[in-house]
Amino acid sequence: MQLTESGVTSNANKFKPCAVIPVYNHEHAIGAVVAAVLARDLPCVLVDDASSASCAAVLDALAAAEPGRIILLRHAVNRGKGGAVLTGVQHAADAGFSHALQIDADGQHCTDDIPRFLQQAAARPQSLIAGCPQYDDSVPSLRLYARYLTHVWVWINTLSLDIKDSMCGFRVYPLPSLIRLVQRKKLGERMNFDIEVLVRLYWDGVSIVNLPTRVAYPTDGISHFRAGPDNLLISRLHATLFFGMLWRAPRLLARRLLPRRGAA
């Protein structure tokens, strides 16, 4: 066992986390995010999702400054946040990492919470650690209402309240479970990704640990959420997941009832 600077007691053969950060034109915020990740002694996989030349230059400089701690991957064309995450987690799994901490590049997530996320992942290595946002006053009210609608659909499509928030991009994946999922199922690669991967991993039996975490509006003021196209993608996803839930319903209900019977 080793106690790392991040505060995680780990067995190097069983718990080997890294960070995966999808990046698209967040050159003004990414440096602080990367610095916070590296301060927690986490290797960092940056995925440049076909950013502008100015952002690409910033990423090149970050990687050059920390060649042993930062891996920089690039997409020739923009594939979306989900596509970038998938590229990063596949690389992480191939490199022998057991877990991937996903965090956004825009600075909205509280990097001080990274140790808490890693501690939970080390304690429950088969579980997915999911951020449950605690927003400040910077978030638009319309965003909150839209998120709540998604929460309701996720509760319907999992027949549970186990997932408190499916849209927060601050989470820790157990890579074996995630890689098994992506090998058999093509997931949405844009803003529908965060929701779909969480629901499908839950369907696969992965338990969810919800951690409250402070979330602010992007520090660089840039959001890539496209109100029309992305809301349409998410609506289609909820419909697809609903029909997928129907034939899984007996198993999902049994999953909730069996522990209760065992405890009786």
Rank of each mutant, 00 (worst) to 15 (best):
Val8His: 02
Ser10His: 09
Asn13Arg: 07
Lys16Trp: 09
Ile21Met: 08
Val23Gly: 09
Tyr24Asn: 02
Glu27Gln: 09
Ala29His: 01
Ile30Val: 12
Ala32Pro: 00
Ala32Trp: 03
Ala32Phe: 05
Ala36Lys: 01
Leu38Asn: 07
Leu38His: 05
Ala39Leu: 06
Leu42Cys: 04
Asp48Pro: 00
Asp49Gly: 03
Ala53Trp: 01
Ser54Ile: 02
Cys55Gln: 00
Val58Ile: 08
Val58Ser: 07
Ala61Asn: 11
Ala64Asp: 13
Ala64Leu: 15
Ala64Gly: 09
Ala65Met: 07
Glu66Asn: 15
Asn78Ala: 14
Gly82Thr: 00
Gly88Cys: 04
Val89Ser: 03
Val89Asp: 06
Val89Lys: 10
Gln90Trp: 01
His91Pro: 05
Asp94Gln: 15
Ala95Ile: 04
Ala95Asn: 02
Gln102Gly: 14
Ala105Ser: 10
Gln108Met: 15
His109Phe: 14
Arg116Cys: 15
Phe117Asn: 03
Gln120Ser: 15
Ala122Gln: 05
Ala123Val: 02
Gln126Phe: 08
Leu128Arg: 04
Ile129Val: 07
Pro133Asp: 00
Pro133Ile: 01
Tyr135Met: 06
Val139Cys: 08
Pro140Asn: 05
Ser141Gln: 14
Tyr148Trp: 12
Leu149Asp: 07
Thr150Asp: 12
Val152Tyr: 11
Leu159Thr: 00
Ser160His: 03
Leu161Tyr: 15
Ser166Ala: 15
Met167Phe: 13
Cys168Leu: 12
Cys168Gln: 04
Cys168Val: 04
Gly169Tyr: 07
Gly169Ser: 10
Phe170Ile: 10
Phe170Leu: 15
Tyr173Leu: 15
Leu178Arg: 05
Gln183Arg: 10
Lys185Ala: 08
Lys186His: 13
Lys186Gly: 02
Glu189Ala: 15
Arg190Ile: 01
Asn192Gly: 12
Val199Tyr: 10
Leu201Ile: 04
Leu201His: 02
Tyr202Val: 07
Asp204Phe: 08
Val206Phe: 08
Ser207Phe: 08
Pro218Trp: 02
Thr219Leu: 11
Asp220Arg: 02
Ile222His: 03
Ile222Gly: 00
Ser223Phe: 02
Ser223Met: 06
Asn231Pro: 08
Asn231His: 05
Ile234Lys: 07
Arg236His: 12
Arg236Met: 13
Leu237Ile: 00
Leu241Ser: 05
Phe242Tyr: 01
Gly244Met: 03
Leu246Thr: 07
Arg251Pro: 01
Ala254Phe: 07
Pro259Val: 05
Ala264Gly: 10
